[in-house]
Design a protein around this nucleic acid. Sequence first.
DNA 1: ATCACTTATTAAACGCCTTTAATAAGTGCA
DNA 2: TGCACTTATTAAAGGCGTTTAATAAGTGAT
Lengths: 317, 317
Amino acid sequence: MNTVPKSQRQLILSSIRRSLLELESATKVELSDKLEISFPTISKFLTQMEKEEEITSVGLDESSGGRRAKRYTYNPEHTLGLAIFLEKTETNYTIFNCAGEVKEQGNAPSVLVDNGLHLLTELIEKIVTANPSEIRSMAIGVPGAVDHGRIFHIPGYDSFRNFDLKGYYEDYFSRPVVVENDMNVAVVGFNDNSGMKGDPSLVYLYAGHNGPGAGLMVNGKVVRGSTFFAGEVQYVQQYDEQNFGQAIKSGDGNIDATSRLIALFTATINPQTVILCNDEAEQATIEKIEQATAKYIPNEHLPQFETVIGRKIIYSG
Amino acid sequence: MNTVPKSQRQLILSSIRRSLLELESATKVELSDKLEISFPTISKFLTQMEKEEEITSVGLDESSGGRRAKRYTYNPEHTLGLAIFLEKTETNYTIFNCAGEVKEQGNAPSVLVDNGLHLLTELIEKIVTANPSEIRSMAIGVPGAVDHGRIFHIPGYDSFRNFDLKGYYEDYFSRPVVVENDMNVAVVGFNDNSGMKGDPSLVYLYAGHNGPGAGLMVNGKVVRGSTFFAGEVQYVQQYDEQNFGQAIKSGDGNIDATSRLIALFTATINPQTVILCNDEAEQATIEKIEQATAKYIPNEHLPQFETVIGRKIIYSG
DNA sequence: ATCACTTATTAAACGCCTTTAATAAGTGCA
DNA sequence: TGCACTTATTAAAGGCGTTTAATAAGTGAT
């Protein structure tokens, strides 16, 4: 429940991968120092990884007085991932490499219909087999509440309710599958993609058809909430008589309401980044929002603003 | 930076301790199953812990068809902890056992003065040596911003600024020391004390002399924020023209303002518990706040309300 | 009471990471 | 070119948790 002492091998492997991506390139000694794993162990793993072309050598370092060290870099094409967003009107998917570059993008009819599971399975199979390189992980964003890969609240789409989509597809496709609320897939994706150091906090704001929503990550972990209600920001009471949901609908209060929301996040979890995801999110609007937020919060604590068009957001296992 | 592969031994030990406290009592097999650690390893550790009187056997289980299993329980007196809150007007301290029972409580003159470090050291030494049982960990709550045990922002008390209090005392007393913002010590303490399962989210609200504050824990981890601004809830804009700080000062809006704040936390991080810490927090007021909150948020998502008088909050390493 | 069966505990063999020692590869200076 | 020195890599020995096998302790039925 608490500590998951999963295979030490996997732990070492994934920490090497992470560091190698973060550092762009590294020598064995650098990795050993950074990860506090002994040199021989790092050496053994890297040798293996090089044999499998997961990493490649990019030559020798300049000598620092002694024998020159070999420098390695991660091969971003080794691990491809697939992200799928199930939406009311259509299904979006993206294939990307672990450096976050989009390799392919497309859409298909919505699978949120009767017998939708079957449709989704067919879609994924088609994508996976059509792709020359191997797709090694997948993330599925659903418009509902998810607990450990089980969809337990998805208003309107009964055929998926209470279904362990993660377990089902991990068996079916034999590779890691993430199933999350669509907002949460988005934050996780942004984070993995951005190569930020440490375990940052970030907020992903989305103004969709069915009301606004937020995806939250705090200290590097997705926040779902005790009743999976986290991120339902429309309920935040912002004015004497209006909550965020009402204010955003009324139209002209848009900028102030959004900036109040960002101020609120700053004064509570103080994230380092806020991602605005909205088709109308042009640079001019963003700047207005930034300025408006500064009215409420001391300047030095304001988050960094990022924007994303649509949902080209990426997940890497 | 990311994964801290700290000594496996410590990891196993602390997970055994946690489980034993959480389960009240357990057999070797139960621990081995729960923690996914092999039976022989659990056995070795428990034998050692029993020899050192950290755990005690409480007899044999009923047979479930074969040989009867020995059942162990944690000895709460084995590990005593000390929590110290540095305040403007005085210094509070509490000694408690790992079951959260307070063993001793007291206060001393404030050490937030010139040469305060020296005073604090003397105070701790006195407490530690005066106590018959060994105090194995300590937590210090300071009214300022703390990063990895280093106090880097503490308005008004220059003698502590930019000082690595944690490092200093860990060297000096040779035992684990936690230094945190006072709010954060409070949440961590509440959590460790409450024996909650999993990694919960909780919010600790405190209405102190120098304005309101909140301590946040999300997914079991303290939230400090990217600029250590997390929990500065007075900046939340709650009404057309007032933020929380102003509303709470104006007096009569107290209940509505507090309930709006709790609603806001529910609609963002959705914590399972909100702890109200306020001398005036009587049962009647709490109930009014609960009712007021329900106006803003669907009932089933409301957090559990807890109250604490003063700051009798506990930390256990 | 003995036997078949279940379950707890202990003992031995193995695997894997670490620590320590040894070797190889460079550099700079006489 | 050869020697002293630095640094990278490889090899050997040790520690520790796991897996597997063996043993001990109970239970219920014949």
